[in-house]
Computed example of a mutant assay.
Amino acid sequence: MRTSTRMAGVLTGLTLVLGGAAFTAPAAHADVSACINQVERELQGGEVPAAIRAACTAGSTGYHDQCVTGLTKASVTNGTAVTACRAAP
Rank of each mutant, 00 (worst) to 15 (best):
T3S: 14
D65L: 09
G13V: 00
A74P: 02
A25S: 03
C85S: 08
K73V: 11
A34D: 13
T57H: 05
V32G: 01
T72E: 05
G19Y: 01
C56V: 05
K73D: 15
H29Q: 08
C85G: 06
T57N: 05
Y63T: 11
T83A: 15
T57L: 06
D31V: 07
T77Y: 10
A58I: 02
T24G: 00
L43D: 08
T61N: 10
G59H: 04
R86S: 12
V10D: 06
G79P: 03
S33M: 15
L71S: 02
G45Q: 03
G9V: 04
V39Q: 01
L43Q: 14
A21T: 00
S60G: 03
N78K: 14
R53E: 13
S4V: 10
C85M: 05
V48C: 10
V68M: 03
T5D: 12
G59S: 05
V48F: 06
M7K: 12
A87E: 13
A50R: 12
Q38F: 08
G20S: 13
P49C: 07
G70R: 04
T77N: 13
C35P: 07
T12F: 15
T15A: 15
G79H: 04
F23E: 00
S75T: 13
V39S: 04
A30E: 11
G70M: 07
G79C: 02
D31F: 09
S75F: 14
L11Q: 08
C56I: 03
Y63W: 13
Y63E: 15
A81W: 04
Y63S: 14
A87P: 04
G45R: 03
I36P: 01
T15R: 06
G46M: 05
L43R: 15
Q44G: 11
